[in-house]
């Protein structure tokens, strides 16, 4: 068994330090640890979604009520969100999205390629700042930067956890 990477634990720790209390997710292997931590944490709401765009609206409502959240999704979910992102841009809502990438470096499943390649252009067209992470040692600083830009500066930021970081899948 290869050793479990430490960076997912780092992400959870940093998000909790920033008082993130709403963790919305559509399950993905790349977010497995984060989802498990949120579900086990009595101080946060882990919100399973039927489609990723629900999470975008959820966090807008959370912000109206003074709470902070994050949406965890796979790159395929970015396409499901496009129109809901107009809420973010029109309302200038702070928004943090963590995207576990498929369909990029070394992808073995052709079905993952279209949205994997479209995810960042869609996010940028919808007003998101995209921060790509390729090395485990860059995860904490990138998360800190993202949280600062979202929760202090009020921006929409997507952190793309690339397949160089999480590993490409053969399926």
């Amino acid at each position: 068994m290869p050793e479990e990477p430490k960076w997912p634990e780092e992400i959870y720790r940093i998000l909790r330090e920033w008082d993130v209390t709403q963790f919305a997710y559509v399950p993905d292997a790349g977010h497995k640890v984060l989802i498990a931590r949120a579900l086990a944490d009595p101080d946060v709401h882990a919100v399973p979604l039927t489609t990723e765009e629900e999470g975008v609206a959820l966090l807008a409502g959370a912000h109206l009520g003074g709470a902070r959240g994050v949406v965890l999704m796979q790159s395929s979910g970015v396409g499901n969100c496009a129109n809901m992102f107009s809420l973010v841009k029109s309302g200038q809502f702070p928004m943090l999205v963590l995207v576990s990438m498929r369909g990029d470096f070394g992808e073995g499943n052709p079905w993952q390629m279209p949205m994997g390649q479209a995810a960042q252009p869609i996010l940028e067209a919808c007003g998101f700042v995209c921060l790509r992470v390729e090395r485990p040692e860059d995860v904490p600083a990138t998360l800190q930067a993202a949280c600062t830009m979202v929760y202090k500066t009020g921006q929409a930021v997507a952190v793309l956890l690339t397949q160089r970081l999480i590993g490409a899948k053969p399926f």
Binding site: T21, Q22, E54, A57, A60, G61, A62, G66, N83, S86
Partner: peptide
């Protein structure tokens, strides 16, 4: 109150996020 004029399909989930926050 906060009323949508786009982002169709988001009202119920905005309400959920607000309800959890308040």
């Amino acid at each position: 109150y906060f009323a949508l004029a786009g982002a169709m399909g988001g009202a119920t989930m905005m309400g959920l996020g607000l309800a959890l926050a308040q």
